[in-house]
Nucleic acid binder design. Structure first.
Lengths: 224, 224
DNA sequence: CGACAGCTTATTGTATACAAAGTGCATTCG
DNA sequence: CGAATGCACTTTGTATACAATAAGCTGTCG
């Protein structure tokens, strides 16, 4: 964390995700610099990173705008994610350690507990879920893959949809994780990849459904 | 092209590709600034971009090094490329215009001419080949996909292998392009994707083969 | 009334100076 | 002799001033 530029990065990023910076609006380096309490130099740095992650676009004359995603863009992102994350699962199946499998199992148990209470603890679910996917990525052991997935995973959140996490979907997610664990137990890459594809596709439809119905006040992660 | 920073980018990039900057060596911003005849500011800009494209790595204390790729990294890159470019072909099949198909056909004719001479004109082959793949990407119409592929396509070149472009492989490449064209003519996404997967996989094996045999003086693009 | 030319202003790009952080070496102490 | 500590030096991070460029506006001319 090189103080200023990282602070600027997180700050701007969270402003985009929270909707404080609305899609389509122009961004001026100096304005952001003041908001973040740093000079333009680290802000420029942060903007380049955010641009690489497609949170920000620049027009032909180098002016920056908050990216504006359509539903088609969303589907494309989920397609890529399904592809990349299946690939990760396949790779992971051939490399994962027993320890990592144990950790996966632990997080999935955590998920079960989080959704078994009378009122589901969604934040806790999301946290375990994120860790679960992270471990798979770790087992896949490919920097390139990790970097690419980072681009695709957080994007959809920009379309701030009110995800009503119905128990049905949370449960399915949990069971799909179980199936992934079985595939890993058998070191079966094809199986793992197939399950992962379905897992992400289901998440997409849950997301798209919620988006159709829904308001866009709250902000949440996408539970895959 | 914002003059200085783009000049720095191209300059550094070509130094890496040409082997002038050898894999593993440390990079100092000021040294590059002098070499490029600009100040450190645009050099830093360029380094960030090159880092995003995995040409450069940074250690925990922010020092930069020329990336060093193993053969495993190479295979992983080709796997990702096969996946992404097949996806692009599938998307393209549903969106490509007759004009684009015509341009594809033109470039593939150019390829045929380039390799039909007594002595194959490899640079010309590579140029047409690049354009061919570019048009498919253009038809796929996904910024995200384009960006990701950019990361994966040029990487292997870093492993400066002497590719002896045997006629056999060049010819196969040409015929695979023809088959892609047929798939596009029928707007058959599955077909296009399947052909593209094989196309890239063959290119990988040709490349790996050459790498095993070979010296590493000359530098060339990878012909897919 | 429309459009184009020229100027004014807003915004980004670059250079430079200085601050902070890290690395390696040398010296000293156990 | 080995290890640890402090200092000098190298390298990167940040701020600021200035240059270049693009956008918008106004006034004039067809």
């Amino acid at each position: 964390m090189s103080r200023a530029s990282d602070r600027a990065y997180s700050h701007i990023r969270s402003m985009i995700l929270s909707g404080e910076l609305q899609p389509g609006v122009q961004i001026r380096e100096e304005a952001l610099a003041e908001l973040c309490g740093v000079s333009r130099t680290p802000v420029r740095d942060a903007l380049r990173r955010l641009e690489a992650e497609l949170f920000i676009r620049r027009n032909e004359s180098q002016r920056s705008f908050v990216a504006d995603w359509s539903l088609d863009d969303l589907e494309e992102a989920f397609q890529l994610r399904a592809m990349l994350e299946s690939h990760a699962a396949r790779r992971a199946a051939g490399r994962i350690s027993w320890d990592q499998i144990a950790r996966l199992r632990m997080h999935n148990t955590g998920i079960k507990q989080a959704i078994s209470a009378e009122t589901p603890d969604v934040p806790r679910f999301l946290d375990h879920n994120r860790q679960f996917h992270m471990i798979i990525l770790e087992a896949a052991a490919s920097d390139r893959l990790t970097g690419m997935l980072a681009q695709v995973i957080e994007q959809p959140v920009v379309l701030r949809t009110a995800l009503q996490y119905d128990l049905e979907n949370l449960m399915r997610s949990h069971h799909e994780h179980d199936e992934l664990l079985a595939a890993f137990d058998h070191r079966d890459g094809d199986w793992a990849a197939a399950v992962m594809t379905g897992h992400i596709r289901r998440a997409f439809h849950a997301y798209a459904e919620a988006h159709k119905k829904g308001a866009d006040q709250p902000l949440n992660d996408v539970a895959a």
